[in-house]
Amino acid sequence: MNIFRLLGDLSHLLAIMILLQKIFYSRSCAGISAKSQVLFAIVYTARYLDLVTVYVSLYNISMKVVFLLSSYATLYLIYLKFRATYDRNHDTFRIEFLLLPAIVLALLINHQFSALEVLWTFSIYLESVAILPQLFMVSKTGEAESITSHYLFALGSYRGLYILNWFYRYWTEGHYDLIAIVAGVVQTVLYCDFFYLYVTKVLKGKKLQLPA
């Protein structure tokens, strides 16, 4: 554990909390892509199956449990509790175009051809692109509420901070995991356009609005 990794995890946790409280207190999931949330639930489920096989640390277990529970809680809020507010007409990204390549790639490029390991790899690949339905929704509607922008910023920062963590781990322990690194870089790059808009608009008090 190092400072970058800790900040990355906290940023991830913050993103989830922002999203849950936004939906809960506004009693609405308008502007949120349910498809991205479904992908995240698949990501955590596939990745954290090792909860029952490997013990890393109490921190590790607690975070995994929180990420798993919160992803299902988010789906519950979107699909059941506040389903009337779900903006399905703008949430039209075809997730099979992300799921199928992630499955094929995980079967082809992995560290070890075993069920748990292929699922872990699949989750890493899928996570790197899971935000696309959400970004697509923002581009389709041309705008995002500030709270949604804060959520996206915290979620995007998380993998960016992990990249620093991987640099640090390679430098201090000689440890590196190419699959995680390459996917993490792809994931962070996908947010770059959004980061630019966030800094130039949202932080200056303006709403995130895309040019028509």
Partner: peptide
């Protein structure tokens, strides 16, 4: 590539 350690990251 062999798997050296369990995945200790989130």
């Amino acid at each position: 590539v062999g798997l050296q350690t369990p995945h200790d990251e989130l």
